[in-house]
Amino acid sequence: NTKMVRFKKGDSVGLRLAGGNDVGIFVAGIQEGTSAEQEGLQEGDQILKVNTQDFRGLVREDAVLYLLEIPKGEMVTILAQSRADVYRDILACGR
């Protein structure tokens, strides 16, 4: 149940992230009207890879910085997997 989305970065990627470290990086929110939303990313999706950067094992701050450093107008390719069950557990633990 993995999906790959590809879009051109606007002012931002339009994602709020949660998790990090051993639990993985998850989409915690999506800005309305962004390409990330239009391409089908959803809250609870685990981000496995962005462009050439493996997101598994990253701390959340490093994942956020990586997304911020992608220049506006560059193509962004995100490999994600729907993991809403794991995401709910992360929220319940306050991570």
Rank of each mutant, 00 (worst) to 15 (best):
I78Q: 08
K8S: 06
G33W: 01
A92L: 13
D89K: 15
T34M: 10
A63T: 03
F26I: 12
R60N: 09
A18P: 05
I70D: 00
L48W: 07
L58D: 04
R88M: 10
R60T: 14
P71D: 06
A36W: 14
T2V: 06
D62S: 11
N21Q: 15
G57P: 04
D62R: 12
L91A: 12
L67P: 01
I25T: 02
I25M: 02
Y66L: 03
V23T: 12
L15R: 04
L15K: 03
G40Y: 00
E69I: 07
N21F: 10
K49Q: 13
L91S: 12
K3G: 03
I25F: 05
M75N: 08
A63G: 04
A18V: 14
R83G: 06
L67C: 04
R60W: 13
P71V: 00
E69P: 05
D89E: 13
F26G: 01
E39S: 15
E61G: 04
D62C: 01
G40E: 02
Q31K: 09
S82H: 11
K3V: 02
L58P: 02
E61D: 12
L91C: 12
R95T: 14
G94M: 07
T34A: 11
D89M: 07
G19W: 02
I90L: 14
E43G: 03
R95G: 13
L58E: 06
K3D: 06
R6Y: 06
S82Q: 09
E69A: 12
D54E: 07
N1R: 05
G29A: 12
N1A: 03
G33M: 08
A92D: 12
S82F: 02
V86D: 13
Q42N: 05
D11S: 07
A80K: 01
D11M: 03
V59Q: 15
T77D: 10
A18D: 05
E74V: 02
K8I: 14
T34N: 10
D85Q: 11
G40T: 10
S82N: 13
G14D: 09
G57L: 02
F7D: 07
F26P: 01
D11Y: 04
Q42T: 09
I70L: 07
M4D: 07
R95L: 15
T52K: 10
C93D: 14
G73E: 03
E69G: 14
V50Q: 04
E74L: 03
V59P: 15
K9M: 08
N21D: 14
L91P: 12
I30Q: 09
G57T: 10
